[in-house]
Amino acid sequence: MRDLGIDVLFKGSNMLRLLEGLWVSMRISLISVVISMVLGLLVGALMTRKSKVVKWFTRIYLEIVRVMPQMVLLFIVFFGTTRVFGWNIEAEKAAIIVFSFWGTAEMADLVRGALISIPVHQYESAAALGMTELQTYVHVIIPQTLRRLIPLSINLVTRMIKTTSLVMLIGVVEVLKVGQQIIEANRTSSPNAAFGVYATVFLLYFIACWPISMLSRYLERKWC
């Protein structure tokens, strides 16, 4: 049988290094997700306001994020700001800025969708029962919104993890880059390492994202 180059992973600390690389991407996505969720809730709530100015601003913001590839945004923040403003942002920080900018828009859109999906009669019934506006939100609207929101925002986490693989292209040493280094280092001893290593990276991403996707789907079925 042909050598699949999987043995490389068991040499020295190679597997551990790959996992460390994966953690780098995970860290970036977790930080970005937390920032996106907090800001997304605010922006999303803002978007349901009637003000024209707010509507236009958020509309333009969403449209930019919808149309521009995250890779382009990464380049702008990573290369562009250095040149134009003389800032020297580390690749990892640039990635967190871009992914939070992107994630906030996605999250805000989800929040807006969840908020407007609550029928008006829910507000009216609450008012008819004599609830104040605060009570209406705390006891009636927010619990229903959360049920619709949680599965979708968990899904955003997997998308964030997948998108962070892009940071490799601005020079962050994450799992794919570590894989490349391992392959380079073992070029002579196991020439087929590229297959084994990249297959492993593929599976690592799958193992990281799949359970989260399943959880999101399960909750969606249960609650929506």
Partner: peptide, 13 residues
């Protein structure tokens, strides 16, 4: 559940 970049690396390299 995997990013395109990783898929391409696997297919190409």
């Amino acid at each position: 559940n995997t990013p395109l970049l990783v898929q391409l690396f696997f297919l190409y390299f």
